[in-house]
Design a protein around this nucleic acid. Structure first.
Lengths: 200, 200
DNA sequence: ACCTGAACACCGTTCAAGT
DNA sequence: ACCTGAACACCGTTCAAGT
């Protein structure tokens, strides 16, 4: 072989990302490896390193796709409501459902740590901002006179809680009897938090 | 060599746990391995598997020690206060400080997933309950007439938020300018949540 | 009975060599 | 220019063999 040019650099990248997502879904976080991704797209491991700096960079693209998915999932489901509190509760529920249904991808998004010193690229941070923005807007409507900085801070507070509950709940670190109670715990949390936020 | 009996089974266990913690502190989660632990206590890898079923079991003991540390850290610092809201705010701050100062151990506690099917042993769940209990008591004092089940649920809600903020904040997934703002974000979160909890 | 050392089946990453 | 295949330095886990 050697020299094939069957696929462009860009094609190889997206093939690798798709393959990684498939492996993640089928074999979980621990089941993913550069070798498996390479094999799955019909190339050698070495080729992967011609297209990505390292495995971390591949995972960054995987996580970017997950972030897009999450944004889509939580905004789509909330469209049917007009009341901000209902929108936010629905978003939180949708976030939990995503985490439950795509556990490996969701947990990769948060367990993945960049190598020491490196920081997330701007285009990735932008995706986080986009997701947060969907939460920020209904919050702003609850407190129309609050300045943007304070609403952004509340967004982070609220989302930390929803995320934390999913994280601890799905990894069985909340000592809950059954998992299905997690949904009502999250609903109750959002209610409590928004009540405090509304009159602060 | 072979046959040394320099140390009892129990001694080997605690030596291994201490060594693992030291490696975690010095080299981070990715730097930990069974081989390094064995080398550090002066035995072969094989010996580790005579004393622990596998690496997961060793990590379970490491995490148990971390849970004890966290419980100690957050209850000790809160003792100087008598007002429940202040106690809870201090506990949240202490939790953040622990996470900041022992990042590897703290993140091991939450990133570590048991192999498929296995669940946490009772004595470990008991430790989680003990930590939660320290948070539950001040919450009960805020709402003395609320039944225990509801207070326990509020404990999980509050702690999910504090934990989630530490998790997302320390892994730079909150898009915050500087890390030191994380402390005030957590304080503000506790304030908002407790406000909602107090009049629910 | 206790411990070793080597083996097995994997990793991520690099790079000389082939076409 | 593009890709391979083998190498390097690691993994977790097992287990026959040694004392």
């Amino acid at each position: 072989m050697a020299r094939r040019s069957d696929h462009s650099r860009e094609q190889l990248q997206s093939m690798a990302v798709s393959a990684a997502i498939a492996i993640l879904n089928e074999q979980g976080v621990a089941g993913l490896s550069a070798r498996k991704v390479a094999k799955s797209i019909g190339y050698t491991v070495g080729t992967l390193y011609l297209v990505f700096k390292n495995l971390d960079e591949l995972l960054l693209y995987v996580n970017a796709a997950t972030l897009d998915d999450i944004h889509h999932a939580i905004t789509e489901e909330a469209k049917i409501h007009s009341e901000p509190t209902q929108i936010l509760t629905t978003m939180a529920r949708a976030y939990l459902h995503y985490a439950q249904q795509h556990t490996a991808r969701w947990s990769m998004l948060f367990s993945h740590q960049l190598p020491e010193g490196e920081s997330l690229p701007d285009w990735f941070e932008q995706k986080i901002i986009t997701v947060f923005d969907g939460v920020k807007q209904p919050l702003q409507r609850i407190q129309p006179d609050l300045n943007e900085q304070a609403v952004l801070q509340a967004t982070r507070e609220l989302w930390s809680g929803v995320h934390g509950a999913c994280d601890l709940g799905l990894s069985n670190k909340l000592n809950m009897g059954e998992e299905f109670q997690l949904e009502s715990l999250i609903e109750s949390f959002v209610e409590h938090y928004l009540f405090g936020f509304a009159r602060s």
